[in-house]
C-alpha cells in the first residue's frame, strides 16, 4: 500500500484547523534546520533551541490567520534569523573593542601536521568556530547566511566600516590556515591564471 506524502500546502491547511499531527510533521521537517541556523549565527545552542521553539510556538498561536506567500522554509528561516539578530542586538556588544584571538591559531607549521590535516575544508570550518565571537558572527552572517553588509549593518546597528574590519580580520585568520597548504608546491599551478 502506498502512502502519499502530504504537500506543504495540505499540511498548512491541516495546521489551520488545529491538526497536531500536521504540526508535528512540519516540526520534524524544519525544527533542526532552524536550530542549526541560530546556532551557526550565535554559537549558542541554548539560545538556538529557545528561538526555534519560539518560532514554532508563534506558528501554532497564529495558525488560523497566518499568511505565507513564500515557501514555508524561507518564512521560518526569516523568522528565526530576525529573532537571532534581535537577541544579538540586545546584548549590546561593542564591535570595536579588541577581542582575544583564538588561543592557538591553527597554524600548522610542520609538514607532518599538514599531511595529517588533510581535510582543509574541515580545518577552515573549525577555524571559523574558533574565531572571536563578534568576528565569527559577522563573518557567518555575511558569508554563510548571505546577508549584504548593508543588511547586517542595519539589523545589528553597527557601521559598515566595522563590518568590513571584522570580515577582514576573519579572512586574515583563515588565510593563515590555508597558506601553508597551498604554498607547498601546488601553488605554481595557479600562477598562469594571474598573467
Amino acid at each position: 500500500m502506498s502512502k502519499t506524502i502530504p504537500t506543504e500546502k495540505e499540511l498548512l491547511n491541516r495546521l489551520k484547523n488545529g491538526d497536531r499531527k500536521a504540526f508535528r510533521i512540519l516540526f520534524d521537517q524544519f525544527y533542526k534546520y532552524l536550530v542549526v541556523t541560530v546556532f551557526n549565527i550565535t554559537g549558542d545552542d541554548h539560545l538556538a533551541r529557545d528561538l526555534a521553539q519560539d518560532v514554532f510556538f508563534e506558528i501554532w498561536k497564529k495558525r488560523e490567520t497566518i499568511q505565507i506567500t513564500s515557501s514555508l522554509k524561507s518564512y521560518l528561516r526569516r523568522a528565526v534569523v530576525n529573532r537571532s539578530l534581535n537577541a544579538i542586538k540586545a546584548k549590546r556588544l561593542d564591535y570595536n573593542a579588541p577581542e582575544k584571538l583564538p588561543e592557538k591559531p591553527h597554524s600548522y607549521e610542520n609538514a607532518q601536521e599538514i599531511l595529517e590535516a588533510q581535510d582543509l575544508e574541515n580545518l577552515i570550518h573549525q577555524t571559523i568556530d574558533s574565531l572571536p565571537e563578534k568576528c565569527r558572527m559577522v563573518f557567518v552572517l555575511c558569508r554563510i547566511e548571505g546577508f549584504s553588509h548593508k543588511e547586517v549593518s542595519g539589523k545589528l546597528g553597527i557601521s559598515p566600516k566595522t563590518i568590513e574590519n571584522q570580515m577582514t580580520k576573519a579572512l586574515k585568520i583563515l588565510r593563515n590556515v590555508v597558506q601553508p597548504h597551498i604554498s607547498k608546491g601546488l601553488f605554481w599551478l595557479f600562477i598562469p591564471l594571474f598573467f
Binding site: V36, N40, D45, H125, R143, L174, R175, I182, F190
Partner: peptide, 24 residues
C-alpha cells in the same frame, strides 16, 4: 599567494555549518 589563500579560504568556508544533536 596571499590572494590565493584568501580566495581559497572564502571558497572553503561556504559549506560551514555547526552540527547539533536534537531529540525531536
Amino acid at each position: 599567494l596571499i590572494a590565493e589563500s584568501i580566495r581559497k579560504a572564502w571558497q572553503l568556508s561556504e559549506g560551514y555549518s555547526k552540527d547539533i544533536y536534537i531529540d525531536l
